[in-house]
Simulated assay, not measured.
Amino acid sequence: MADELLDRRAVHDELEQARTTFHHLLDGAGEADLARATRGTRWNNEQLLFHMLFGYMVVLALLILVRLFGRLPRGISRAFAALLNAATRPFDVINYLGPLGAVKVYGRRRMGAKFDRVIATLHRRLDAESAADLARGMHYPVRWDPFFKDFMTLADIYRYPVQHFDFHRQQLTLASQG
């Protein structure tokens, strides 16, 4: 059943592709590249790269939430998602401001190392998931992210960060993208 829900090999490959791409983008960027404005966001390239990393970091928290809410009646996660949807404006502000400060703390070297650690953790957790775990799900605040669906399983959550990453990669204006 687990293989019906999720092609684990494909997800492992996608995680590795994202890791390789992230390092290529980060390592190929000069200071001027990182400071350059992005397409369609108010962030510069360095800030958007952190946001892309953060999308993977968020998945670690989402895995915990799915395990919790996936064991409760669906109405509870539906109410939680509605509450989060109602808080979209403050979320948007925090989502924007977070990378502004985070790049001052993380910097290029720490972002690359953190990306590696998060991907390694996702690999380990994916390998440990049972079919029952992958089938658990919960409702999500669809106003928070265009890739959130109203109801997502744990299998869906493992697919989410690649969508987020690929979308934002198109907004970067790095010379190393070519």
Rank of each mutant, 00 (worst) to 15 (best):
A29D: 05
L72I: 15
I76A: 14
L84I: 00
I76S: 10
A86N: 13
G101V: 10
L62D: 00
R109I: 06
R67W: 11
H12Q: 11
T20Q: 13
L60C: 11
L60G: 07
T38Y: 06
D27Y: 00
R108G: 02
A87Y: 01
R42S: 14
F50K: 03
G101Q: 06
T21C: 12
A87Q: 14
L15Y: 09
G75Y: 05
L84N: 05
R109T: 12
F50M: 05
L65E: 13
A81N: 03
R19D: 10
T20F: 06
R78D: 12
D13N: 10
G112A: 15
F80Q: 10
A29P: 05
L62V: 12
N95R: 03
L53Y: 05
L25R: 06
F69Q: 11
E31K: 09
V58K: 01
D13S: 09
E46T: 00
T41D: 06
A113H: 13
E14D: 15
E14R: 13
A29T: 07
E46L: 13
R110I: 03
L15I: 14
M111R: 10
W43R: 07
R110K: 14
G28Y: 09
F91H: 09
F80S: 14
L97M: 08
A81G: 02
L84Y: 01
W43Q: 13
R42N: 12
L48D: 08
V59Y: 00
N85A: 11
A37C: 00
A79H: 03
R19K: 10
N45S: 05
R110S: 08
I94G: 02
W43N: 10
H23Y: 05
H23V: 04
N95Q: 09
D92E: 15
G112H: 08
W43G: 09
T88K: 14
A102H: 01
Q17C: 05
